[in-house]
Design a protein around this nucleic acid. Structure first.
Lengths: 109, 109
DNA sequence: CTGAATCCAGAACGATACTG
DNA sequence: CAGTATCGTTCTGGATTCAG
């Protein structure tokens, strides 16, 4: 843990609030296991460096597993840990709220 | 809305992921109405400028109301909009997850 | 009391090129 | 294929000062 938190929600926000972390976690929820390149395809606008960094941070926080196969060419698979799976309900709620937000905005246009 | 989103969760993250926004929303859930100075006291580590900015952004996104009383000295009250209140379940879940995370870490020390 | 204005440091994010 | 390294930009948040 990184610092003093005045409210428990800060912990979750610290862990989830990278620019791409939410989407990555959502995709891992749906697909169970994804290779680096597959995630990259699902997030067309993220740079390789940034994606690597976000994945490393999620790994360091214990939300995802990173499995490296000692092959050539390399193969790396990512999946949620049990711990990361405990965020499932939260992520789903966040998606739902975002979806209804988008729908409302589209109604007014 | 600010840009193209590839996944609805990005909308929610955009709106909630300021450094202090989650905590502010949580406090407004509990207290209904809070004056600027009261929020400041609840977040001892935030600067005035940053707090003002975060509140303005939450207002622009339609999550909170800002009510100015034309008095001297000034009085400004903040409260959740109906729309912001729709985040209640999400914020509670995020708090719960953060709380259990903290407890787990404390067990191992 | 609330907040605007300015200035600034550091972090976050991206583009590009290179590697086992 | 899945990175690392480097560089540069943009964004965020904080300190400080001033104002109605």
């Amino acid at each position: 843990m990184r610092k003093d938190y005045s409210h428990p929600i800060e912990v979750t926000m610290d862990v989830v609030c990278g620019k791409w972390k939410g989407v990555i976690l959502c995709h891992l929820q749906q697909s169970e296991v994804l290779r680096f390149g597959e995630i990259k395809k699902l997030l067309p606008n993220v740079s390789q460096k940034t994606l690597t960094l976000q994945l490393r941070e999620l790994e360091a926080d214990g939300l995802i597993d990173r499995r490296v196969y000692p092959e050539v060419p390399p193969k790396v698979e990512y999946s949620l840990t049990d711990y990361g799976r405990e965020l499932e309900a939260t992520l789903n709620l966040m998606s739902d709220w975002g979806k209804s937000h988008v729908e409302k905005v589209e109604l007014n246009s």
